[in-house]
């Protein structure tokens, strides 16, 4: 079997793998292993890690809550301007995250279009809050979910939904009991991408939510600032972030694979 592997595919595949894995190896090689336990015990590190996991998870939930219905709208209904809307959804992907953060400030900031009203009406101000971190992460990560779920919906057979309707299922029941289970793999894949993107989010977060330990300083922000003075600490923090995300994703994958 090994003699039959097509080199035209295998060679670029290995090159691609090396390209993705070598920077990780670089981090591992340069990691200050002797001081690592002490650095990990620093309360700021755990605080940033906790904040990162919590905000990325909440951001993913927000994306699921809003993104799945949005994907459904794009895939299953026809309305004028749908193409334009689909193009607009990819904006956060294209936009440099810092610009995304500025854009969020212009809308949700204290003097922003909506933020002004939020502040005046409810006394709510989102920048510099943990909620602001979630918003920045959700903004940047949502396209991954929407695109993935819309793809699943488009490749799925809409006739299952018709069959459900003929059995007396309302549109909501159809969505809940037929559509959603059928696109579950796509939703999960999208949620994973979304979570990973939210976990690594830096630019929009620091711009919109600022950087304050315990409130808005997520791991990527801590890594960046550590880089200013202590590159070794930055390596440690990056490794922690990587290790935790890999463990979580691998753990989840085990579960799905065994379930599906």
């Amino acid at each position: 079997m090994s003699g039959r592997l097509p080199w035209l595919l295998l060679a670029p595949a290995l090159a691609g793998m090396a390209f993705l894995v070598l920077p990780l190896a670089g981090l591992l090689v340069r990691a200050p292993w002797s001081t690592l336990p002490a650095r990990l015990a620093e309360p700021q590190v755990l605080e940033a890690l906790r904040l990162s996991l919590v905000t990325a998870t909440i951001a993913t939930l927000v994306c699921l809550l809003l993104g799945v219905p949005l994907a459904w709208l794009l895939a299953r209904t026809a309305f004028p301007g749908r193409r334009l809307l689909r193009a607009l959804i990819t904006v956060p992907l294209v936009l440099p995250p810092v610009v995304g953060g500025v854009a969020l400030l212009l809308v949700l900031g204290r003097r922003g279009l909506v933020g002004q009203w939020l502040d005046a009406t409810f006394g709510v101000s989102l920048p510099f809050t943990t909620a602001g971190v979630v918003i920045a992460e959700a903004f940047v990560a949502m396209p991954f979910l929407v695109i993935s779920v819309e793809g699943a919906l488009r490749t799925g057979d809409p006739r299952f939904e018709e069959a459900a309707a003929t059995l007396g299922a309302s549109r909501w029941t159809v969505f809940r009991r037929v559509t959603l289970p059928l696109i579950a793999p796509g939703v999960l894949a999208g949620a994973v991408l979304c979570w990973a993107r939210a976990l690594g989010e830096f630019g929009a977060t620091i711009t919109f939510a600022g950087n304050f330990p315990g409130t808005t300083q997520t791991m990527p922000l801590a890594v960046y600032l550590a880089l200013e003075t202590e590159p070794e600490a930055a390596v440690v923090l990056s490794l922690v972030l990587l290790a935790v995300s890999v463990i979580i994703l691998a753990g989840l994958r085990e579960r799905w694979v065994s379930r599906i």
């Binding site: 920048p127 711009t207 600022g210 950087n211 304050f212 330990p213 300083q217």
Partner: peptide, 15 residues
């Protein structure tokens, strides 16, 4: 007690 500790002076000024 600042609300944010920005990564550079330009970002601070932007706020």
């Amino acid at each position: 007690t600042p609300v944010t500790l920005e990564q550079d002076v330009k970002a601070t000024l932007t706020k």
